[in-house]
Amino acid sequence: MWNYEKKLQYPVKITKTNPAMAKLIISQFGGPDGELAASMRYLSQRYTMPYRQVAGLLTDIGTEELAHMEIVSSIIYQLTKDLTPEEVEASGFAPYYIDHTTALWPQAAGGTPFSATFFQSKGDVITDLTEDLAAEQKARTTYDNILRLVKDPDIADPIRFLRAREVVHFQRFGEAIRTLGSTLELAIYKALRN
């Protein structure tokens, strides 16, 4: 069951609109390595985890990713607030604007709509955790790419926070897979003996 806190995990205060930038950052909302994909991946995988430690980690990181999705959405919302038609056309934002005005809709920067094909939930502890390690690095790389193109410090600030969290998540998934290592080896050894 989810509760909602009426605050962002990290504040977003962007005073200068920039629809061109919004067009790129939207990948971290609805793109293949974005926060929605991350959240759905972890929250889907957790049910079949045979260890509560891992189910707990997936629940908690999956929930944090929803909070990150909210931060990314807030960034896009503030970057596209009160746009004039001229600003829409000049920034390359027009194709998205036609279908969504300035509403938030999960898609990648290139236009691909959000899809469950962006993630796997495979029902094997090692497989799923390995997927999760890759996912955090893919997200981190996406933030690196964004940071190379962002000039406005009001945008860079929350983006840098989100990037740092991906690194921490990677660390946690690594710890989970490492502590499981010996448990699983023992289980596999016992299974093979019988």
């Binding site: 605050k7 995990q9 990290y10 430690q53 707990g56 946690r172």
Partner: peptide, 23 residues
């Protein structure tokens, strides 16, 4: 107060993940 709450909540978000792998 809101800034303070942001900090305390973040600290807890982080330690919860740590405790999941270091119970």
């Amino acid at each position: 107060l809101l800034y303070y709450i942001h900090q305390v909540c973040f600290v807890l978000d982080d330690i919860v993940l740590y405790l999941d792998t270091h119970p």
